[in-house]
């Protein structure tokens, strides 16, 4: 049997209901796929792309100058610029949520309809998390200091890093 929409062999036999009455369709694999695919088939794309799209929409209503200024703003911890975030839809580090808080709020409102977390809270050390995030910056600055042969600066940074890491490790051992 040939497909009713093209000349390939019909391998799919579909019962379509038209006004409550069954209607037989004989289709090849490709045509059956097209027929059966829900019209919202791109819906899967929406979620990952959404952040990027919405982030780009943030530009609406800003003047070119404001936008350029906003785009150049960068995170002191990971170095990502707002422009890079708008392009990728992915943030660079936890501190971005603090650094870009006022820019992110309309975006979060758009995605979630809310801007405040009300769920689970980590049992241990939730307030120490931001201090841990500063390790990202300190490690980066230490690497830069070593590269620039500013060893005194590097050693001061190393001490700072160790102090924070020790506080962290104390926690993991106390369990």
């Amino acid at each position: 049997m040939k497909c009713q929409k093209c000349d390939k062999p019909a391998t799919f036999h579909i019962t379509d209901l038209v006004d409550g009455k069954p209607n037989e369709l004989h289709l090849c694999e490709d045509c059956a796929h097209k027929f059966l695919a829900p019209s919202t088939e791109e819906s899967g794309e929406v979620l990952p792309a959404m952040a990027g799209l919405l982030a780009q929409h943030l530009a609406v209503g800003e003047t070119a100058e404001e936008l350029a200024r906003l785009d150049q703003r960068s995170c002191p911890v990971c170095g990502i610029t707002f422009l890079e975030f708008r392009k990728q839809g992915r943030l660079g580090c936890p501190h971005d949520y603090i650094n870009f808080a006022s820019e992110l709020e309309p975006l979060l409102l758009n995605i979630h309809g809310e801007t405040r977390h009300v769920g689970k809270v980590p049992k241990f050390c939730a307030s120490g998390a931001e201090q841990q995030t500063q390790l990202i910056r300190l490690r980066r600055e230490m690497k830069e200091a070593i590269a620039a042969e500013e060893y005194e600066q590097a050693s001061a940074l190393r001490d700072e890093i160790r102090a924070i890491e020790q506080a962290r490790d104390k926690k993991t051992q106390s369990e």
Partner: peptide, 22 residues
Amino acid sequence: EARVTYAYNDRFGYLTACPTNV
């Protein structure tokens, strides 16, 4: 969570790479 420090903040909760999961 008892063994590591998760990225978390009181206002936005668990912090994720994509704002759709935060």
